[in-house]
């Protein structure tokens, strides 16, 4: 049975599962090599790699949680 990419290694021969989160990055079971628009290739050795889809990350193509909702608080608490 293929494992969920959020936890576990897929069995040999099973397709890589890609998880689309509704509020954040795309999760890909690693290691992965990502080809960028300029042709550069980046490798991630992590068990799970979170790829940015909101384009707000400061570390493209990887998620840095910049997709989070920003709530403005004016007053010092």
């Amino acid at each position: 049975m293929p494992a969920d990419p959020a936890h576990g290694t897929p069995a040999p021969g099973t397709p890589t599962r890609v998880t689309l989160t509704d509020d954040g990055p795309v999760l890909v079971h690693g290691p992965v090599e990502v080809e960028l628009p300029d042709g550069r290739r980046l490798r991630s050795e992590r068990a799970v790699t979170a790829l940015c889809t909101c384009r707000r990350t400061r570390r493209p193509p990887f998620c840095d949680t910049s997709h989070r909702t920003r709530v403005r608080e004016e007053n010092h608490s």
Partner: peptide
């Protein structure tokens, strides 16, 4: 920890 914990957040919540 910036990139690692962006992944860990997802695993903690979903996994």
């Amino acid at each position: 920890h910036v990139e690692a914990d962006a992944v860990h957040e997802q695993i903690l919540r979903r996994g």
